[in-house]
């Protein structure tokens, strides 16, 4: 049962972020300069003339004391609403949104930021960047870890000595120092795609030490198994042995490590963007959405801008539970 809930949550999270264009009512870069820091919209069922047959929002207008609802103007929520056009999955152009309201009305479920951009839409689109960075970085790390771990575990001797020495070197420096130093000493002003790739590479190449050590341990124990010796006796080459007998043993460890690394890298991207070293505006990411919270007055007055922190918590918890489940699964299936 718990397993099913976990899998459902995992799929829901990724589907919501993958289908950001469909779920988000607005374009993430769309500014409403008249609505800075608008609070989350209140959705009503009951109005002046009793209960309505579908939810609606009132028109909201700012004045000196804050935002006020105008009960005379009602905008019912429309589902599968035609609004801003977007690219679904980066392939098809579409303009259908899950929900929206008609033109002069606006619906900001999670409020707006300083430029009046819809926080909810930015949260979903920002998730695409953050999660993609996490997943790509993890892939890179796992590839490095598998390669280095296998080489040093299987061939041993000087290769082992030098790689593990290097790993110790990397573990000597705190990750925050590494991340900032490596990022800052690479070109700072690039277009978002280049920055994204660069950050992913930086994160991916920092984190290889732990998984590589674990893979090395597994490879070391797998190498001395009888079936490996038998295969070698039959004349199997090193490459065949690694590919057929050794890598499968390391697979479980790599899988568990992947589930642990993804949230770490999502966080690392958030940390970089938080300090302005990551993805630059107007492209949203959870980190650069949070960076506005460095101003104390924003924290005090506009609590809804903490939404990306909530998204980070949800992502981390889901992946952590996944890692836990994978760990138990690997333990019960290993020979």
């Amino acid at each position: 049962m718990r397993k099913r809930i976990l899998i459902a949550a995992l799929i829901a999270l990724h589907a919501a972020i993958l289908l950001a264009g469909l779920l988000a009512p607005y374009d993430p870069a769309n500014q409403n300069r008249g609505f800075p820091y608008a609070p989350p919209a209140r959705i009503h069922w009951v109005g002046r003339s009793g209960v309505y047959w579908r939810p609606f929002v009132y028109a909201v207008s700012p004045n000196l004391t804050g935002y006020h609802e105008d009960p005379s103007q009602i905008f019912p929520l429309r589902f599968f609403y035609r609004g801003d056009s977007y690219k679904l999955l980066g392939l098809f152009t579409a303009d259908i949104h899950l929900f929206g309201v008609d033109a002069p009305g606006r619906i900001f479920i999670l409020g707006t930021d300083a430029y009046g951009r819809d926080e909810f839409s930015r949260l979903l689109y920002g998730g695409q960047i953050s999660l993609a960075a996490g997943l790509l970085g993890t892939l890179l790390t796992l590839a490095m870890a598998a390669l280095i771990g296998t080489i040093s575990g299987y061939f041993g001797k000087w290769a082992d000595e030098s790689f593990m020495g290097l790993a110790e070197l990397f573990l000597c420096l705190p990750w925050f120092y590494f991340l900032v130093a490596m990022r800052a000493f690479l070109p700072l002003h690039l277009n978002p795609t280049c920055t994204f790739l660069l950050i992913t590479c930086v994160m991916g190449s920092i984190g290889w030490t732990r998984p590589a050590r674990l893979v090395r341990g597994v490879v070391l124990s797998a190498r001395n198994r009888d079936y490996v010796a038998a295969a070698r006796g039959f004349g199997a080459s090193d490459f065949y042995l690694i590919q057929r007998h050794i890598m499968p043993a390391a697979f479980g460890v790599l899988l568990t490590q992947a589930a642990l690394l993804v949230p770490q890298y999502v966080t690392a991207e958030a940390v970089l963007s938080f300090f302005g070293l990551g993805i630059a505006e107007p492209v949203p990411s959870w980190g650069n959405m949070l960076s506005i919270l460095q101003q104390y007055n924003v924290i005090v007055s506009y609590y809804w801008l903490l939404a990306p922190a909530g998204a980070l918590v949800v992502t981390s918890v889901i992946y952590w539970l996944l890692a836990d489940a994978l760990h138990h699964w690997v333990k019960s299936h290993s020979i």
């Binding site: 966080t267 940390v271 919270l293 104390y296 924290i299 903490l306 980070l312 918590v313 918890v317 539970l321």
Partner: peptide, 27 residues
């Protein structure tokens, strides 16, 4: 489990928000 899963930066931001709003401790 929860504390291990939640990233440090989020704990920091949330506690900051709490501290700044409640004004109990200086920030």
């Amino acid at each position: 489990s929860f504390l291990i899963a939640v990233p440090e930066i989020v704990i920091a931001i949330l506690l900051m928000a709490l501290a700044v709003r409640s004004r109990i401790v200086p920030v």
